[in-house]
Amino acid sequence: MQKAIVYVISAVVAVLVASSMLFVVDQRQFGVVYAFGQITDVVTEPGLHVKLPVPFQNVNYIDKRLLTLDSTDSEPMLTAEKQRVVIDWYVRWRITDPSNYIRNVGLTELAGATQLNRVVRNAFQEEINKRTVKDLLSLKREALMSDVQKEVLNAVKSSKPWGVDIVDVRLTRVDYVEAITESVYRRMEAERKRVANELRSTGGAEGEKIRADADRQREIIIANAYKEAQQIKGEGDAQASRIYAESFGKDPQFAQFYRSLEAYKASFASKSDVMVLDPSNTDFFKVMRNGASSVPGKK
Rank of each mutant, 00 (worst) to 15 (best):
S19F: 01
S20E: 15
S20K: 00
S20G: 10
M21N: 04
F23Y: 07
F23N: 00
V24L: 03
V25K: 00
V25D: 00
D26E: 06
D26G: 00
R28N: 12
Q29N: 07
F30A: 03
F30H: 01
F30Q: 05
G31V: 05
V32R: 02
V32A: 03
V33E: 07
Y34R: 00
Y34H: 03
F36M: 01
G37E: 02
G37A: 04
Q38F: 12
I39T: 11
I39D: 10
D41A: 11
D41W: 08
V42C: 12
V43R: 05
T44D: 11
T44M: 05
T44F: 06
E45T: 14
E45C: 04
P46I: 05
G47W: 13
G47T: 07
G47D: 13
H49T: 11
V50K: 03
V50I: 13
K51W: 15
K51Y: 06
L52S: 10
L52D: 10
V54Q: 08
P55G: 12
P55N: 12
F56S: 10
F56Y: 14
F56K: 07
Q57Y: 13
Q57C: 09
N58T: 14
V59K: 02
V59Y: 07
N60P: 06
I62W: 10
D63N: 15
K64M: 13
K64F: 09
K64V: 13
R65V: 13
L66M: 13
L67M: 13
L69K: 04
T72F: 09
D73I: 15
D73P: 04
E75V: 10
P76N: 07
M77K: 02
T79N: 01
T79C: 09
